[in-house]
C-alpha cells in the first residue's frame, strides 16, 4: 500500500464532497434533519411520560447515522466515479483496490464522526441528552461496530454493482431501508413477528441496538448488555470477513466477465 495513493483518493473524496451539493445534503443535511424531526415526533408522541423510550429513539437514530453514513460514503464515492466514467482512469494507474477502499473507509469514518458530532449537538441542545452520559468504552464499541458493519455492507453492495452493472445501483439506497426495520433499530426485538425475529438475530446491528436500549434504560452496562455487545461484535467481525470474501469474489467475477470495464463505458 502506498500512502500517496491513499492521499490522492482522499483528496478526490474531498473535492467530490465539497463540489457536490447532493453529497453535502445526503451526508450532512438529511441525517441532521432526521435526528431533529425524529426527536420532535418522539417528543410529541411520548411527551414526558416515557423519557427512557424517548431518549432511546433519539440516540438510536443518532447511532444509526454512523452505519448509514459509512455505507453511503463507501458506495456513492465509487458510483460518482462510475457516473463520471472515471473508474478506468483510476485503475489504469498503479492504484490498488485495497488502497482505494482504505481511502474510502477513512473518508467514511471522518464523515460518520462528523455526522455523529452534529447529531450529538442537536440531541444535546434540542432534547437535552448528552451522549457522553454513555460509558466511553460503550460509545466506542457501538461506533466501531456500526462503522465496520457499514463498511461490510458497503463493500458487498458495491461488489454487486461491479459484478452486475450500474443498473442495480438502487440497491445502495434500498438495502438500508430493508435492514433498518429488521435490525430492530428503534424498538425491541420482541416487537417483531416471530419469523422476522429469527432474521433479526442473524444481523449484528440488532444486538448493538438492543444493547443501546438496555444501557440507556439501566444507566450502566449490565452483564446482559455486555453479552449483547460481545455477540454483536463477534457477529460484526464475522460478517466483515465474510464481506471481504464476497467482495473479492464479485470483483474477480466482474474482471472475468468484463463487467468491471463495462460499468465505466
Amino acid at each position: 500500500m502506498a500512502l500517496h495513493r491513499i492521499k490522492a483518493i482522499l483528496l478526490q473524496e474531498y473535492f467530490m464532497t465539497y463540489r457536490s451539493l447532493e453529497t453535502i445534503v445526503d451526508v450532512f443535511v438529511y441525517p441532521s434533519m432526521n435526528i431533529a424531526v425524529f426527536g420532535f415526533i418522539s417528543k410529541y408522541l411520548l411527551g414526558s411520560t416515557n423519557q427512557g423510550i424517548f431518549l432511546s429513539l433519539i440516540v438510536a437514530m443518532l447511532f444509526w447515522q454512523v452505519f448509514s453514513t459509512t455505507q453511503y460514503t463507501v458506495n456513492v464515492a465509487t458510483l460518482w466515479n462510475m457516473w463520471a466514467h472515471n473508474l478506468t482512469n483510476l485503475f489504469a494507474s498503479p492504484l490498488t483496490l485495497l488502497e482505494y477502499f482504505t481511502a474510502h473507509a477513512i473518508s467514511a469514518l471522518i464523515k460518520a464522526l462528523l455526522v455523529f458530532g452534529i447529531g450529538s449537538l442537536i440531541a444535546y441542545f434540542q432534547f437535552g441528552y448528552s451522549v457522553i452520559q454513555l460509558p466511553f468504552s460503550f460509545l466506542l464499541i457501538m461506533i466501531l461496530n456500526l462503522y465496520v458493519a457499514g463498511i461490510a455492507i458497503g463493500l458487498v453492495l458495491i461488489g454487486f454493482i461491479f459484478a452486475y452493472g450500474i443498473r442495480i445501483q438502487a440497491i445502495t439506497w434500498a438495502f438500508i431501508s430493508i435492514i433498518q426495520p429488521l435490525a430492530s433499530v428503534f424498538y425491541p426485538l420482541s416487537i417483531l413477528p416471530e419469523p422476522f425475529q429469527s432474521i433479526a438475530r442473524a444481523i449484528p446491528l440488532t444486538y448493538m441496538f438492543e444493547a443501546l436500549r438496555q444501557t440507556i434504560q439501566d444507566g450502566f452496562v449490565s452483564p446482559s448488555t455486555l453479552q449483547l455487545l460481545v455477540t454483536g461484535s463477534m457477529s460484526t467481525s464475522f460478517y466483515f470477513f465474510l464481506s471481504l470474501l464476497i467482495f473479492k469474489h464479485l470483483i474477480d467475477s466482474s474482471r472475468q466477465t468484463g463487467q468491471f470495464a463495462k460499468n465505466d463505458l
Partner: peptide
C-alpha cells in the same frame, strides 16, 4: 491511458482532477 470513453470527474475543476492523478502517480 487515454480514451474518449473515459473522462475525469465532471464536477471538479481541471486543476483538481489533475492534482488527484499527479498524486496517484507520485
Amino acid at each position: 491511458y487515454i480514451s474518449s470513453y473515459n473522462t475525469l470527474l465532471g464536477r471538479t475543476t481541471v486543476l483538481e482532477n489533475l492534482q488527484i492523478y499527479a498524486r496517484l502517480y507520485n
